[in-house]
Amino acid sequence: MTEEKKEISPYRERAKDQGTYATKPTAWTRFMRIFFPYQLWRFLVINIKMLRMISKGHH
């Protein structure tokens, strides 16, 4: 592989284009994803939702 080929960087160019049409999270969403108190609450909620789903599927 030559250095010249590596400089072409086709993925990077395409990524910009594909990313243009994709939904992206706001700074607030990204913050809430790792905001400790809120995630503690989500930890409980997700576990309850998963247990509900598991109990629905057991025969």
Binding site: Y11, R12, R14, A15, Q18, G19, Y21, A22, T23, K24, P25
Partner: peptide
């Protein structure tokens, strides 16, 4: 939508 979003956010092409 969610998967494309995650990839776009992380600069991953597909």
């Amino acid at each position: 939508i969610f998967t494309e979003s995650l990839f776009a956010e992380r600069g991953i092409d597909w």
